[in-house]
């Protein structure tokens, strides 16, 4: 099966001399929801902008559905829809006019029925005659999504789709994304929230300082990343983990004054209840307990460290 999007050795150095992307290789599977996860400034928007034709690559190449985005830009771009990170809309146009404009721009003949369907799905139908400047921020974002869907793209890019978005739009958007996926559209979204990637994606790629440091199935990645630790500060120090606690991932810390339990947030049963009961039975008393979760920051740091 050929990939819907193939990014090969992509590099970008901005005019300022800043290297925003370093040798990025990434294949996107047809019909998947892919989350590009990374902190601010990692290069997510740069990557998307190159694929969409807004920024020129400095090195490498990109194939969209087999078409080189530079040499066969028409065939490549008509398959791609983009919802940028920032709210960028016209002011004086009506909702209907601006969405119809987008469809034409992408080379598609007029199709009022499709525009109506898109506007209805995004709860914009009642606002179709209103000028964009009269709309709220949330509504404007919906308009931008409608524009991106106006030409029935096969690949949809959502750049930080939920940043500053209200709960309702967020819910609508995820429902829409799932519906699009069911229709065979491939969706690539960027986010710096690990929860968001977790909620939506089939696969996750982690980008850090312009480097794609990892690409994995969500389940596998979450098992790796989504770990929590429970630290029990003991009344009496221990020399070793008691025999009766085999089967728990326990370690001693702080010269035996603390017992650290590592568990997986992905599983239904964390095993904490059973562990505490077992400790009670064994007579291990503790003063206090504290849980910690590996933050996205820790995860990046760990990933970067493990690579070098």
């Amino acid at each position: 099966m050929s990939h819907i999007l193939s990014i090969q050795q992509l590099g970008k150095t901005y005019a300022s001399g800043f290297e925003a992307l370093k040798n990025v290789d990434l294949d996107i599977r047809r019909g998947e929801i892919f989350a590009l996860l990374g902190p601010n400034g990692a290069g997510k928007t740069t990557l998307i902008s190159i694929v969409c034709g807004i920024v020129n690559a400095s090195a490498g190449r990109v194939l969209a559905d087999g078409h080189d985005i530079a040499r066969e830009f028409r065939a490549a771009r008509e398959k791609i829809g983009l919802v940028p990170q920032e709210l960028l809309t016209d002011a004086f146009e009506s909702v209907w006019a601006t969405v119809s404009f987008s469809r034409g721009l992408f080379g598609k003949p007029r199709d009022d029925a499709h525009i109506e369907k898109v506007l209805r799905e995004l709860s914009l139908w009642d606002k179709r005659h209103e000028k964009i400047m009269a709309l709220s921020g949330g509504m404007k974002r919906r308009v931008m999504i409608a524009k991106a869907l106006s030409h029935e793209p096969k690949i949809l890019f959502l750049d930080e789709p939920t940043a500053g978005v209200d709960v309702e739009l967020r819910r609508d958007m995820w429902a829409m994304v799932r519906r699009l996926r069911d229709d065979g559209v491939t969706i690539i979204l960027t986010t710096h929230y690990i929860e968001e990637a977790e909620e939506m994606a089939d696969r996750i790629g982690v980008i850090h300082k312009g480097e794609l440091i990892l690409v994995e199935e969500k389940a596998a990645l979450m098992a790796k990343l989504g770990r929590k630790q429970l630290t029990l500060h003991l009344q009496q120090p221990l020399n070793e983990v008691p025999q009766g606690l085999n089967g728990y991932t326990l370690e001693l810390a702080d010269d035996g004054h603390a017992l650290v339990y590592t568990f997986d947030t992905q599983t239904e049963q964390t095993g904490i209840g059973a562990l505490l009961r077992r400790l009670n039975e064994l007579g291990v008393d503790f003063k206090s307990l504290q849980s910690s979760e590996s933050s996205l920051e820790d995860i990046f740091v760990n990933l970067v460290r493990s690579r070098s």
Binding site: G53, I54, L82, L88, L105
Partner: peptide, 14 residues
């Protein structure tokens, strides 16, 4: 100036 040029740049227009 407004940034809406992104759409023209990303469209299949020469």
């Amino acid at each position: 100036w407004s940034g809406t040029i992104y759409e023209v740049l990303s469209a299949p227009v020469s």
